[in-house]
Design a protein around this nucleic acid. Structure first.
Lengths: 137, 137
DNA sequence: CTTGACCCTGTACTATGGTACAGGGTTTAC
DNA sequence: GTAAACCCTGTACCATAGTACAGGGTCAAG
C-alpha cells in the first residue's frame, strides 16, 4: 500500500512543504510518481521522517542526518567503511554528551547558588555567569 | 577610561559588526558617543559581551539572554525568575543528554552488528536505524 | 596635509531550517 | 458534473545569528 505526501506528513507530524524541502535537499529519496505526478510513498517513509526529527532533537544538522542516512543507503556495499563512519559518529555523540554534561553542571552551580542565598542577597546567577565568563576559556 | 568599539571587540573576541548587531537588537545598551559619533564603552562592556557568549554556550538564545539581562535591571524578585529559568534549562539539557545516550547506544549496536556479521550477511544498518526511529516519540 | 587605520550608517548577503503563496492540475464525493 | 480537497512546481518569505560591503567621516603619524 502506498501513501500520498499528505498522509505521510500527517503520520509523521511534519509539514508537506518540509517533506518536499527534504527531497530537494537530498535527505529524502524522490519516490515513485503516479501518472499524474503524485508522489507515492512506502510506509518506511514515515519511519525515516521520525528518524530525521529525532536526530534533529539530538542536535544533528540536516547535513549530519544526511550522512547518517547515507550509511543506510550504502547497505550491502562497503560494510567496513560504513562501520568506520559509524564509530566516528559515536565519537561525535560522546563529545556532545560531555559538552552537555559540562553545561548542566554549570547551570546546576548557578541554581544552587540561588537556593542558598540569604534573603537580602542579590541574585548570584548573573554574577556567576560573568565570573564564568572570566574563569573559562 | 573608555574603549572604542574595536577595542571592546578585540578584548571580548567578537566581531565589531556583532556588537552593533546586539545594540540594534537591544541586547547591548547604546553607549555614549564622542562629538564625532564614535561609541565610547566602559570596561564593563567587555564583561557583558563575555556574559552573552557564555550564556549562548549554555544554550540560551539571544532572546533568552535579553530576558536575563532585563531581569538583572529589576533586582529583588528577579532572582526567583532567573532561578526558575535556569532550572527549566537544566531539564532541557538533561533530556538532551538522555537522548544522546540513547543515540550513542543505537550507533554502538549498529557498529557491533557490523563487526559480527557473517560474510554473506547484509549490512544491518537499515533495520537498526529504523528501529530507533520507531522506538522514539 | 596626506595616508592609513579606524569609525559611522545603511543595506545586502550568508547559512540553516523551514513555511507560504501563486497558479495551475487531479481526484473524490455528492 | 461540479465543488472541495488534494497534489504539482516555482518562487518568495520567515526567524536566528550573524557577516560583508558601499560610501562616507575622523584621527594620528610622518
Amino acid at each position: 500500500m502506498t501513501l500520498t505526501i499528505g498522509q505521510v506528513a500527517a503520520a509523521a507530524d511534519v509539514n508537506i512543504q518540509t517533506i518536499r524541502y527534504y527531497e530537494r535537499r537530498g535527505l529524502f529519496a524522490a519516490p515513485k510518481r503516479t501518472p499524474a505526478g503524485y508522489r507515492q510513498y512506502a510506509e518506511e517513509a514515515v519511519a525515516r521522517l521520525r528518524f530525521i526529527k529525532h536526530a534533529q532533537d539530538l542536535g544533528f544538522s540536516l547535513r549530519e542526518i544526511q550522512e547518517l542516512l547515507g550509511l543506510r543507503v550504502r547497505h550491502g556495499a562497503a560494510c567496513d567503511a560504513v562501520e568506520r563512519r559509524t564509530r566516528q559518529k559515536i565519537e561525535v555523540v560522546q563529545q556532545k554528551i560531555r559538552d552537555f554534561q559540562r553545561m548542566k553542571r554549570t547551570l546546576e552551580r548557578l541554581a544552587a547558588a540561588c537556593a542558598v542565598r540569604r534573603p537580602t542577597a542579590e541574585c548570584p546567577i548573573l554574577e556567576v555567569l560573568e565570573d564564568h565568563g572570566d574563569a573559562s576559556h
